[in-house]
Write a protein that binds this DNA or RNA. Structure first.
Lengths: 166, 166
DNA sequence: CAATCATATGAACGAACGTTCATTAACTAC
DNA sequence: GTAGTTAATGAACGTTCGTTCATATGATTG
């Protein structure tokens, strides 16, 4: 709390005029993050279209979001164990809703024979972990260009779904 | 420290007869983990062989290790930021040595035309994140069998490397 | 047997933590 | 201009944390 106050340029006690406590800050931060990523996804994806296009849109958005918001992305994935009830259930539900979009695409794609995977559920988690993992090493001032990193990850993820590329 | 002491059935002060402090415990734990995973890998992989076989051996070992040692696996990946010098450099070097094995396979495979990936370095990180991510959801008493989880991840990772399966 | 060593203990320490609260200052509304 | 709301402050609180240390106990060694 003292660090947060310092970063905002305020004394620790002032925080309690805006938040009930530390947990509420974390919950609100993660809720807003989940809302942002869900809204971003809705905007990035066309409503219908070929499943391979939909998949690529999802993947491209997800990795771009995590490249551009590494802190919150990392936080949402790793700091879930610090979340307490109430609030934890909400955030988990939002994350599940988000991930279910990917699961649905993979499931449909498998049924249509466009993708191949024995377990779409596992594949969804595997792909998400793969993409989200970019936050642990990517730095904007690093050697690799943002776009080539995104492309590499999207390609790898598409291949992992067994996409038959033309 | 009090938790650790309690788990071992000892008072906190007794710990300091064996370790200089909290940091030393963490460093030693991670060092031993890295030694175990490196030794395990060496045992699991044949010295030579077709690159696709080597890759599969690496992948199968890595995911199996993390399924069977979820705590340390998760720790080694997520708690690196809590590591301080001295010791951090050592652990990082050991992890890099481990990961370089995968990088080497991917690089050779790309040169030989067995795999396809624009950036073997990125792909290595992507695959490792994907496999290591199993620790955040897999539970032995869950619905999914250990073996089918391993197989699914290995297949997905092999496909992500663009392996031309016969 | 005496001396040394290894290990465990309870008490205590200073620091850091999240939080509370009375007080003060600034802006808003009537 | 006065009353009421909003937000910031410093001081203090009770905990928890990692750590220290004098002391006790048991095993090992000469």
């Amino acid at each position: 709390m003292r660090d947060i106050a310092g970063a905002v340029g305020v004394r620790p006690s002032a925080i309690y005029n805006h938040f009930a406590g530390k947990q509420e800050i974390l919950v609100e931060l993660m809720r807003e993050t989940m809302e942002a990523i869900s809204a971003g996804l809705a905007e990035a994806m066309s409503q219908d279209g070929p499943l391979d296009i939909l998949l690529e849109q999802f993947l491209r958005f997800h990795i771009a979001f995590h490249i551009d918001n590494p802190q919150v992305g990392f936080l949402s994935y790793m700091e879930l164990r610090s979340l307490e009830e109430p609030g934890k259930a909400d955030v988990l539900a939002m994350r599940d809703a988000y991930e279910s979009k990917l699961r649905a695409i993979l499931y449909e794609g498998q049924k249509a024979g466009v993708f191949q995977s024995d377990h779409p559920d596992i594949l969804a988690r595997a792909i998400l972990a793969m993409l989200t993992g970019v936050t642990v090493w990517y730095r904007p001032d690093g050697a690799l260009q943002r776009e080539e990193v995104i492309d590499s990850y999207v390609k790898a993820a598409l291949r992992s779904a067994g996409l038959k590329k033309e």
